[in-house]
Amino acid sequence: MRRITFMQAINEALAQEMERDPTVVVFGEDNAGGAGAPGEDDAWGGVMGVTKGLYHSFPGRVLDTPISESAFIGAAAGAACSGLRPVAELMFVDFMGVCFDQIFNQAAKFRYMFGGKARTPMVIRTMYGAGIRAAGQHSQSLYPIFTHIPGLKVAIPSSPYDAKGLMIQAIRDDDPVIFFENKVLYAVEGEVPEESYTVPFGEANFVREGDDVTIVAIGRMVSFAEQAAEELAGDGIECEILDPRTTSPLDEESIYESVENTGRLVVVDESNPRCSLASDIAALVAQNCFEDLKAAPKMVTAPHTPPPFSPTLEDAYVPDPERIAAAAREVVEGAGARA
């Protein structure tokens, strides 16, 4: 099958949905990049180029915005309530600080607060994660905060295939969806069908099957977990890797199904540890699979610090395959394991 990058997969999803549905619009800072400037109109296509090319294909439906996240994220909510399916870009999720009200008090609340009569079909695309030496205000993995808010859906693709299918599902979904794109994954290639398709929300992907330990990994951590599993397989430890793909809704059932079989859990989460996806999933498993557990669940996360700048420090900050492998080894054969 054809192979394209994670970034191309998102771009293709946007293009195909814009083609299919004239109410889909795309806007954000530099989404065209160059609108109104003397040079090229579509100079950037977003700061990383994800929306590049859409500006000319869909006149009037790809808009640059002033640097006013409150206004244009709120506008996405208003547009969603009045007949559009906007895809707004919050360039880095770290910038949620300047527009969070529009997301969690407005968009997230409408359906419930208005007695089920409002539809808010909007997508907020946002970059997350460490790895590009961008330090404390451009590198956080803040999806737990959004996962915490009822009314929001949260998608975190780990592969080009999922990126396209989850994006199409997000656009067609009638609830506000926060779509997390790990900036380090943009260049990753994978098999992606040319046709449009959806990946449903709330269905974890069994990335790898195994009987010894369940590793739940999110976003970029999925490929790290695969590397760890590969190494452990050499030592006879078979890992089952689950990628939840969406953290809200969360496919609890598949996680329990896997842990019931393996009896061991490692959760890998790039976010900070307190009130994280890792702590949430570990708690759910402890509560619901206690009888099946042969060892205490282990969390592999970033430390409870802001993301550092120094490459040396940043590399130590992000969970890596070695730490994942060590955690898996420990729950299988270490002191934490019980017979």
Partner: peptide, 16 residues
Amino acid sequence: TRQLVNDVLKYKRLDG
């Protein structure tokens, strides 16, 4: 197998 199920679902999730 789980993979067979996934493959069928992937097909079913294509538009049309």
